[in-house]
Amino acid sequence: MNAAAQGSEPVRYRLAVLALWGAPVLWTVNLIIARKAPGLVDPYTLAFGRWLIAAVVLVALSWQELWGKRAEVLRQWRHFVVLGFCGMLVCGAWVYLGAQSTVAMNIALIYAASPVLIGLGAVLWLGERMRPTQVAGVVLAMAGVVHVVVQGRWTALAQVQWVAGDWWIVAAMVAWAAYALLQKLWPSSLGDSARLAAISLGGVLTLLPGMVWEQMSATHLPVTAEALAIMALAALVPGVGAYWIYGWAQKILGASRVAVTLYLGPLYAAVAAYAVLGESLGWQHIGGAALILPGVWLVSRR
Rank of each mutant, 00 (worst) to 15 (best):
A3C: 00
A3D: 01
V11Y: 08
R14I: 00
R14Y: 02
V17E: 06
L18D: 07
G22Q: 10
G22N: 03
A23Q: 14
A23L: 08
W27S: 06
A34L: 13
A34W: 08
V41G: 06
P43E: 05
Y44D: 07
A47W: 08
F48E: 11
F48Q: 09
L52F: 15
V56N: 08
L58H: 13
W67N: 12
W67C: 14
G68M: 09
G68W: 10
K69P: 11
R70C: 11
V73K: 00
V73P: 03
R78E: 01
L83E: 03
G84E: 06
F85M: 03
M88K: 07
W94E: 03
W94K: 01
G98L: 15
A99F: 12
A99D: 04
T102G: 06
V103A: 14
M105E: 13
I110Y: 09
Y111G: 01
Y111V: 10
A112T: 01
A113Q: 04
V116C: 12
L117K: 04
G119H: 11
G121W: 11
A122Q: 07
L126Y: 07
M130R: 03
M130I: 05
M130W: 01
R131T: 07
P132L: 04
G137W: 03
V138P: 02
V139T: 00
V139C: 07
L140W: 00
A141I: 05
V145F: 15
V145L: 13
H147N: 15
H147A: 15
H147F: 15
W154A: 06
L157K: 13
A158H: 09
V160E: 12
V160T: 05
V160M: 14
V163I: 06
V163Y: 04
A164E: 11
G165E: 11
W167D: 09
W168L: 02
W168H: 06
I169A: 13
V170M: 12
V170T: 14
W176F: 10
Y179F: 06
A180D: 00
A180S: 13
L181S: 04
Q183L: 10
P187H: 15
L190E: 02
D192N: 15
A194F: 07
A194S: 02
L196R: 01
A197Q: 13
S200D: 11
G202L: 05
G202E: 05
G203Q: 09
G203A: 11
L205G: 04
G210C: 05
G210A: 05
G210K: 01
M211H: 08
M216D: 00
L228C: 02
A229S: 14
A232F: 07
P238A: 08
Y243H: 10
W244G: 09
I245H: 02
I245Q: 08
Y246A: 02
G247N: 15
A249H: 05
Q250L: 06
Q250W: 12
K251V: 04
I252R: 13
L253F: 03
A255H: 01
S256Y: 13
L262E: 08
L262K: 00
L264H: 01
L267M: 07
A272W: 10
V276K: 09
L277R: 06
G278L: 13
S280G: 14
I286L: 15
G288P: 03
L291C: 13
P294C: 09
G295A: 12
G295S: 12
V296Q: 02
V296G: 00
W297F: 14
L298Q: 01
L298M: 05
R301P: 07
R301N: 08
R301E: 06
R302D: 10
